[in-house]
Design a binder for these strands. Structure first.
Lengths: 209, 209
DNA sequence: GTTGCGATGTATCGGGCCGATACATCGGGG
DNA sequence: CCCCGATGTATCGGCCCGATACATCGCAAC
């Protein structure tokens, strides 16, 4: 999952590890607070070995450099890396629909075509609906088997599920009618979108005044 | 974290692995769908080595047994295990407040005293508030840097944070006034609650009709 | 009746990700 | 001048996951 995120960010611009971590944190703030270095550096090494990214010494004219040994390392995506990114983004395994997987895919939706977006959105909805049904089951039939706190936890979880299903449903409706999510601002990254990018949003309805 | 959950469940009744997994799934359905055996069995081994639990051959008179080799293994908590459980439940490290950690602690709140419950609830609230502030920051100052989908993800996350803070606030208020969570049914497990158990709930207000 | 299938049940393996830790440079305030 | 916080790269032990293998039980279909 992290692989996809790194490839996605490096597609926008080359970066070094520290920067990557920060961008990851803001882009995926909902999913994971901040990626650990104990994950990041091994993953970068892995991607490098696979040939998806290359390591290049920092250009001293651009970045105020650490003047000597062990200077910062800038990572850059390769052509094969871009292919890999597209593959990962479009293919849907079961892990595509868990919390982390879905979040990463969603965060890069602007780099996908509508069909893929719909497929992922619907898969995620199905997943959450299953979770929801499981919780309803427990709440209805195991009312006396569990204590008050556990029940409260389940109720809160059920609520979150129902809320997410509604959210997904709205997104799916928007996709089908050819609208981007309800965002007042403009789209970022008008650079190299492949496939059809979502059109400007007409802001269907206002729920956060 | 799993250690705490296992100890908690085995405190109620001895069980074998398969059963444990199912109970774990219903008790922590909100947190993790189902624990992997690749996690469960090594953890059981670890707990056994540490002396928190013991392994005993299944009693054939109770459980319809698999008639021969590799019969099912029933795990039972030890006195040291109960101590360990109490320690884990009451102590609060930073991991106590992340999603999984908080969920497990909360699920066993009926085995804690009110002071501990309040401490954990407030720690969790603080954690979520920090996440919320981070998201607000990103949404306000990075409006043009991120694309519509990423922004929508952040908005949804922010919404979930605000909702959880409200939930926690309500729970904290209830705790302070000496009420259990708003549950219509009775408390389960009136067996060996240590410390002060939360009293019956007067169902303060109705928000899920 | 036997055959096959789904639920029950125990166990291992490779790999992803985490927190803790170590080490090094840089700019600025006391 | 010296220390401290931000920047920056890297490793290690450990938790947890998905995939896989293997074995038994009850039952229904053929």
């Amino acid at each position: 999952m992290l692989e996809l995120a790194i490839l996605g960010l490096l597609q926008e611009t080359p970066m070094h590890g520290y920067e990557l971590r920060k961008e990851l944190a803001t882009k995926l703030g909902t999913i994971r607070a901040a990626i650990s270095y104990g994950t990041l550096y091994p993953t970068l090494k892995r991607l490098q070995t696979a040939g998806w990214i290359t390591e290049s010494a920092s250009d001293p004219s651009i970045i105020p450099p650490m003047t000597s040994k062990r200077g910062r390392v800038v990572y850059k995506i390769t052509a094969e890396g871009k292919e890999r990114f597209a593959d990962l983004l479009a293919q849907a395994g079961p892990e595509t629909y868990d919390d982390a997987g879905f979040g990463v895919h969603f965060a890069f939706f602007s780099r996908t075509d509508r069909a893929t977006r719909l497929r992922i959105l619907e898969g995620r909805r199905r997943r959450i609906e299953e979770r929801r049904e499981g919780l309803r089951e427990v709440l209805s039939r195991a009312g006396e088997r569990l204590d008050a706190y556990t029940l409260e936890l389940q109720r809160h979880g059920l609520d979150a599920c129902e809320r997410e299903v509604r959210w997904l449903e709205e997104l799916i409706t928007n996709e089908r009618s050819g609208r981007a999510p309800a965002t007042p601002g403009t789209l970022g990254f008008p650079d190299d979108l492949s496939g059809d990018a979502p059109p400007e949003s007409p802001r269907p309805h206002e729920d956060r005044p």
